[in-house]
């Protein structure tokens, strides 16, 4: 491909991908409720957003839900990956295959299933039901990321630790977890962004009380295009891109022992 053609191609795709998003960001600073024309720079949409009780509740819900769900999913997913990697047991292959299902299952189907379960068991919809729902799709991602990190883990390290007198728990705590910590962190970040971003499953399982930021956005968008949606969208955008970039740097960076992560 000639450089000129390549530049034109990159430019066109870049415009297609980023222009719409840029419009949202730019209009979140436009000092007019309706006009498309630029009326001057303002932060008032952000101020009114931050002042709104609904936004604060949604933010609080999002933080509580994604933190709890991520902690739980990271613990469960890491243990799962470690068990699958180091132990041989009946059903291991099936379990490995099962891990991919929540990744490929359409959100709407998981949402319907979880709601059906909650209704059938009379579980009150709220933060708890959403946390459980998020964990159910996060576990897979954590286990797959951590499992990837374990691929290169030398079995001889485990054997060396046992040879030196470490029981299973000590091997896990002192050798395996510290060595794969970058992988656990990466898995946790993936899980957290999935939780913060999730709309559909939360929408089905949250009930009235536990609306999150994506649910706020959805409700506002359904009511029409307003500058505060732009502001909220911009905030969420900055947050997820920021966290993901940080995570990417963390994964690519050599850890303190000088070995590339």
């Amino acid at each position: 491909m000639r450089p000129a053609a390549r530049r034109a191609l990159f430019g066109a795709v870049l415009a297609f991908v980023y222009a719409p998003i840029l419009v949202v960001v730019v209009y979140s600073f436009n000092d007019s409720r309706f006009a498309l024309a630029w009326q001057g720079f303002t932060l008032r949409w952000y101020r009114s957003l931050l002042a709104s009780a609904e936004f604060r509740t949604a933010l609080e819900n999002t933080l509580v839900i994604s933190l709890s769900a991520t902690l739980l999913a990271t613990a469960l997913g890491t243990l799962l990956a470690v068990g699958i990697h180091f132990l041989r047991f009946p059903g291991r292959r099936a379990l490995q295959a099962l891990l991919y299902l929540p990744v490929v299952m359409p959100d709407i189907v998981m949402a319907v299933g979880l709601l059906a379960l909650y209704v059938a068991t009379h579980l009150t919809l709220g933060r708890v039901s959403v946390i459980l729902a998020h964990v159910s799709f996060q576990i897979s991602f954590v286990a797959l990321v951590v499992g990837g990190r374990l691929q290169g883990f030398p079995v001889s390290l485990v054997e060396a630790a046992r040879d030196l007198g470490a029981g299973p728990l000590a091997v896990l705590r002192r050798i395996v977890l510290p060595v794969i910590r970058p992988g656990i962190a990466a898995g946790a970040v993936v899980a957290a962004t999935l939780s913060v971003d999730d709309f559909l499953i939360t929408y089905f399982t949250a009930g009235a009380g536990a609306s999150t930021l994506p649910i706020r956005i959805y409700a506002m968008v359904k009511r029409g295009v307003t500058p505060d949606v732009n502001a909220l969208a911009t905030l969420l955008l900055v947050f997820t891109i920021g966290v993901s970039l940080l995570a990417l740097r963390g994964v690519g960076r050599p850890n303190r022992t000088g070995e590339t992560a």
Partner: peptide, 13 residues
């Protein structure tokens, strides 16, 4: 008994 591993298996962390 203790084993000296062929690849040494020193704990990197």
């Amino acid at each position: 008994v203790n084993l000296v591993f062929q690849d040494y298996a020193l704990f990197p962390h």
